[in-house]
């Protein structure tokens, strides 16, 4: 198990909060909450050691297409593949828009 922290530039704080997923086999839990203006802070607790570079690239790819609001994102990962992680993040962001 490993705990990783990431920070990226962001917009204004998000309005609501959202929870998606579950810490089940091959899945992850994502909690999204309003953060400090200008900062997207992500903390990842993952069962897979040595995966920092993969997470970094995954977040960079997600942010290439869109600017996110300022959020504190907490991820509890139980061995999800990058595809599942991406889907869960997109799902969480969509839920924020409906919150």
């Amino acid at each position: 198990m490993q705990t990783l922290s990431f920070e990226f530039p962001a917009g204004q704080p998000a309005r609501g909060r959202a929870l998606v997923g579950c810490v089940g086999s091959g899945d992850l839990e994502v909690l999204l909450e309003p953060g400090t203006a200008g900062t997207l802070a992500i903390q990842v607790v993952t069962s897979v050691n040595g995966s920092a570079a993969r997470w970094q690239q995954l977040f960079e790819r997600l942010l290439r297409a869109q600017q996110l609001p300022a959020l504190n994102i907490a991820i509890h990962d139980f061995g999800a593949t990058p595809g599942v992680v991406r889907l869960r993040l997109e799902q969480g962001l969509e839920e924020l828009n409906h919150a």
């Binding site: 198990m1 929870l19 810490v23 839990e29 909690l31 069962s47 907490a74 509890h76």
Partner: peptide, 10 residues
């Protein structure tokens, strides 16, 4: 759980 290397749930 974390002390035993297992990812917790919120």
């Amino acid at each position: 759980l974390a002390r035993q290397g297992i990812v917790p749930q919120a």
